[in-house]
Amino acid sequence: MAAETGTPTTLTLKSNDDELFSVAESAAILSVTIRNMVEDGCAGGVIPLDNVDGKTLASVITYMNGISAIPADEEKKKSYRDKFLSDKDFETLADMVLAANYLNMSCLMDAVSAKIAQVMEKKSVGWVRRKFGIENDYTPEEEAAVKEEHKWTFEGVETDDDN
């Protein structure tokens, strides 16, 4: 096989909107999902990734290449992750976390989740709903009960709604 002759093996990944991407196997196996496919011998042709769109997959591959080029230095890897996520707009973070979950990439999922959590720090419930585009699916009575249970933390914090 190619690996035995010293040439790096390249895999072809296909997004759910039919875009094709080439990526070095050594970088792609950061994804446990892809690694399992490679180990099971299912990675001969094109690997279809049905739950990831082309835009998100392009981003994930940039990350795979970037992080696998860094030697085993956790500090440098962390700073690469921070830099990688710093220019991602907020809307793509949800796609990234879903893709990381599907591809089973714990390090990326961890970093994206931390970034999402950071966005919510010190924010009110109303602010988070608007920012994340989430509809309030509580009935008024349920919501009142939810807030009553830990009233101390909800009182007087709605003022940051427009920040």
């Binding site: 919510m120 924010k123 709903r129 994340f132 509809e135 309030n136 509580y138 939810v146 909800f154």
Partner: peptide, 8 residues
């Protein structure tokens, strides 16, 4: 607690 009050 704020996170937990956003939606069901």
């Amino acid at each position: 607690l704020a996170f937990s009050a956003v939606c069901c």
